[in-house]
Nucleic acid binder design. Structure first.
Lengths: 319, 319
DNA sequence: TTAAGTTATGAAACGCGTTTCAGAGCAAGG
DNA sequence: CCTTGCTCTGAAACGCGTTTCATAACTTAA
């Protein structure tokens, strides 16, 4: 393996000149330029990018933290990040965490150790202050509604989005409304819960714990919830559901059980994945791709910004 | 930012000793160990991983090439890779290519420049010899049925798997069978095509070009194909379909059009995604997660191995 | 003609952790 | 008492590209 100094010797110039030529800097005479390229050719020179990273103090790599790679919500976000990163000469390092704090720290440590220039949390388990602690090492961005002066955020207003979902149902006369969520802990989930409680209060309905279905993230979870729903003595007539995947599971299981949607059970999903279109699920479209793209832009910048993106209702046939 | 030499000064030892302490090597007296850790604490030392990478000549990062991040086939593969990489202290760099050759080269260049220790091609567009060219820079693995002495491969036998799909249909009396594929060019696709032709020949049926539906990868493509199918004068009675996603699109569109499955059109999918279970699609289960895991193992090893994994038919209600 | 640029080039310092090798000190085996 | 071998430590070399600074040569404006 030859290095830049070998090239310099063969081309009869200094390493500085070699570096200049390789990086297309000005102020190098044409003949030397040529000599350098010939030497590169002759010695089959391969740059060692790790030396560049060490020298420059940056890597043009962004770390992406996501709990589950194989889930359309996160896949779509990741795609948005990747599409934005591509044209910008950035690479992505993905860290699948399963919501384990250690894995999240591992991702943050990549920032601390200068392996990545920034970190994007598509979702998280670790407390907020942990992200802040690592802020000194570089940009950290989160995909949730927080206005922190150190950490950039990109989000949709989950309170309003959930409210919209509730309103659609209420306009159709529903008063007995439940909801599905992946985990209660998440900050986006909490916003949804607040909206849930507030909306119920407006119509004078109590919050019934049995109507809140946790651990709903995948299609199978939807099927499970439907089963639970059938066993409820006092069951809700409508559900606002984590995402389209869970909504699909719910809908398909309902079909199997001969439960008509929306007559006996109305469903509102989130995301507007292709699946929702195919199954004609009424849903709230979230600009996941754009959230990803903006998250990337934030991650490569040292400025702290906060941005909310719009969502909108897609009316189909489950309400 | 302090470095290892600063630590050495403060702790009154050599950099060698500091390095030994930080890496938990033996042969360091307890008092020096302590002095080093105290200095680390005092100076708030942060290792620069790029220096480590440069020095060691490896990064414990594997590059993963995939055409589309946001597709359950590739997501599931990636998940398998990630799960295997996790316990092994490896990180993953993902490159989304959209099947563009340049992007694939970019991924291979990361290997050449020592940014990654190995590269996994979950699918590719570039010709095979290109991968071989880069083999000198490190392990390259492909997820397709090729027995090359330089490049490791992990795959399922797509010829046999497709054959199985055809047989299931033929056993039910189908003779007019078509198929869907993402792109004809891929080597896995070609195996399927061979199987298709061979099986048709066995029953004396011709290969009808109109019964081969290309560019089928997503759910929407399934809906499109169903529409095309309805317009065919002489239409097949059964389709072997790219994957469960396309099969779902097909099935749901059929339902909308009032076309009964499997009576008027039988469908066999591939993968066995949760969606296939939910929609009761007969499919051929591919061990995608395990393919990913094995691909990772191959990518971190310099030995060239070839491995085929088993598949199996999951009979449900679309045949 | 002189001061002020502009072009061109290289020495040396910088970023930083790992590893080899040489050597010192000490204990166990013969 | 001597040899062998293990414990412990540090100097120096290694991996390698970038960048600053000094300098030289040549223009151009005044």
């Amino acid at each position: 393996m030859s290095n830049i100094r070998d090239i310099a010797k063969v081309a009869n110039v200094s390493v500085t000149t070699v570096s200049r030529v390789l990086n297309n800097h000005p102020y190098v005479k044409e003949d030397k330029r040529k000599a350098v390229w010939e030497a590169v050719e002759q010695l089959d020179y391969q740059q060692n990018i790790n030396a560049v990273h060490l020298s420059k103090g940056k890597t043009s790599v962004i770390g992406v933290v996501l709990p589950y790679i194989n889930h359309p919500y996160f896949s779509r976000l990741l795609e948005g990040i990747a599409d934005a990163a591509e044209g910008d000469g950035y690479k992505l390092m993905v860290i699948q965490t399963n919501y384990e704090a250690e894995k999240e720290i591992e991702a943050l440590d990549m920032l601390r150790l200068k392996q990545v220039d920034g970190v994007i949390f598509t979702s998280r388990n670790s407390p907020w202050y942990v992200l802040k602690e690592y802020r000194t090492y570089g940009p950290v961005v989160a995909c949730e509604n927080k206005l922190d002066e150190e950490i950039s955020t990109i989000f949709i207003d989950h309170y309003q989005a959930f409210q919209l979902g509730m309103n659609v149902l209420m306009e159709k006369g529903h008063r007995k409304i439940g909801y599905c969520i992946s985990r209660r802990k998440g900050s986006n989930s909490q916003k949804r819960h607040e909206a849930y409680c507030d909306q119920l209060e407006k119509i004078g309905e109590p919050v019934r714990d049995k109507w809140i279905f946790e651990k709903c993230l995948h299609m199978e979870d939807g099927a499970r919830v439907l089963q639970e729903w059938t066993k409820l003595e006092d069951a809700p007539t409508a559900l606002v559901v984590t995402n389209d995947l869970v909504a699909s599971g719910l809908l398909l299981e309902a079909e199997k059980m001969g439960i008509t949607v929306p007559e006996r059970l109305a469903i509102v999903g989130f995301d507007d994945q292709p699946l929702a279109e195919a199954l004609q699920i009424t849903t709230i479209r979230l600009p996941l791709h754009e959230i990803g793209a903006e998250a990337f832009r934030q991650a490569k910048s040292d400025q702290v910004v906060h941005k909310a993106l719009p969502f909108r209702l897609i009316e189909r046939k489950t309400v």
